[in-house]
Design a protein around this nucleic acid. Sequence first.
RNA 1: UGGGGCGUCGUCAAGUGGUAAGACUCAGGACUUUGGAUCCUGCAUCGGAGGUUCGAAUCCUCCCGCCCCAGCCA
Length: 577
Amino acid sequence: MIVPEKNTDKLDKDVKGPLETPQLDFIRAIIEEDIKAGKHDGRVHTRFPPEPNGYLHIGHAKAICIDFGVAADYGGKCNLRMDDSNPAKESMEFVEAIEEDIRWLGFDWEDRLYFASDYYEQLYEYAEQLVKKGKAYVDDLSAAEIREYRGTLTKPGRESRYRNRSVEENLDLFQRMRAGEFPDGSKVLRAKIDMASGNLNMRDPIMYRILRAKHYRRGNTWCIYPTYDFTHGQSDSIEGITHSLCSLEFEDHRPLYDWYLDQLGIYHPQQIEFARLNLSHTVLSKRLLKQLVDEGHVSGWDDPRMPTLSGMRRRGYTPEAIRDFCDRIGVAKRDSLVNIALLQHCLREDLNKRTQRVMAVLHPLRVVIDNYPEGKVEELDAANNPEDESMGSRKIPFSGTIYIEREDFREDPPKKFFRLAPGREVRLKHAYYITCDRVMKDQRTGEIVELHCTYDPESRGGWTSDGRKVMGTLHWVSAEHAVNAEVRFYDHLFVKEDPFDLKEGEDFKHYLNPNSLEVLSDCKVESTLAEAKPGSRYQFLRQGYFCVDSDSIEQRLVFNRTVSLRDTWAKIEKAQQ
RNA sequence: UGGGGCGUCGUCAAGUGGUAAGACUCAGGACUUUGGAUCCUGCAUCGGAGGUUCGAAUCCUCCCGCCCCAGCCA
């Protein structure tokens, strides 16, 4: 058979093209160029530089995945550095929490945990160098004056009357600042750059302030502290960082970092900025999250509704799901608001693979099987994961009285409802077919209190050989064997996709979801869960993924719903209304 | 009105002059002892207007919109 040449050409092209050249985000593209050009001798060394003043959230996870991921991709290293230049807000508690969260996420900084506070002496020396070069001066202006002198976005600033002190005087004053001769806030060290610059960061930025605060690592050895801007760039330089990856808001700071590095004549890393993550239905800001904690809108930093890594961990998220999410959202420079549905998709996909199926009835409705032999109990086989035989199976007890889900029964079933209803037959997962004969109600309230059914002994295991079609399959739990449990349901923290899309005078808390937490205390779970340990994850058949909460104690199981299963029926039902 | 960025499907996001990848969502359908999972199918002319070119999301010009910056926070 002769194949026209044109076609083969086309085929060739189609098959090769995109498959052979994996797409690079713009950061990796730059790095590959740098490597090709022999910049930094082809070395790649990044860092993740948090300030230990709060807990890490999913936005940090994005940065962590980029910083550590890029290094890993190019055989480089990634440091963990605490950017601690503000003693008033930082603590060891946060350092430890940060380390724990990053480890949990699955990244390793080996022996490279650094602290900007370890560079204080070096930084001070750098500052003196700038003073000696006439590039920095001690200013006596008050904070208010400095602000006023800075000018505005459209008006240039004015030079301080202290700007032209002699090098000798500046050096003397700066040394005495360090020696503690001046009260807090009375003087600052400033870089002498350009008070008329369009970039406000270049209008003689402050390098050092006098601050008598006990530092969580340095104690009281310092009474002057470098500002972040005078700390960050040089810290990267000291560590030999090749690519300083950070978020967009530091783009205007880059010229300043470059200026310091150039004036000092020290090693010069390359800063590249990317857009930080915004997630729908939540907020990603340490300040705002702290506010939610402090005002009691959530139970703490690790409340399972929080987008913090500790909250997500407690809720049942896996590091794998979070990393997959970070891969999928990509890296770019434009502001975006990623829908939380994508995060949940990644979660479900991971949990679906790894999680054992069990049965739990959240809103129990008692069902008596009239023709089941009195007192009989059977042990039935139940696969732990129908998609993964290696996960094995377990035995679950079946008896004449069981619980099913209240919403799995309707007296007047709507169209397409193929669960239990009077006269209807359904399958009990792993067990038998049952048919509903009678509905028992509370005389006064009319509430359904119990169902009476009959079962088909031939359908053991949930199947018959007569080819009967049974559409509905229900989960259930044997009444006498069931274990009580509390189950906590979580929903979006905010009802609005973008909590910052506010009308005049509205606070972001205006859109807090009043129903973000729902607690069910009378749930019935299968007996195999009696010994379940905190942190263990399951799929409750037909309902979702659940995780044993740290509040769980013996005899009192507490589950968190990590995420629901996709619910097609809910959509159908909603569409019917 | 200053400086720095950014504008491609509902949401993310590829594309770097050769005729719009992919993912999520959504809508159909297949399959199913989880109405789960899985599998098919469908869904954008690229902020706007001009221009250059045989050909532009990609180049030029102008315009519009959004984000960040006036902490001795980071």
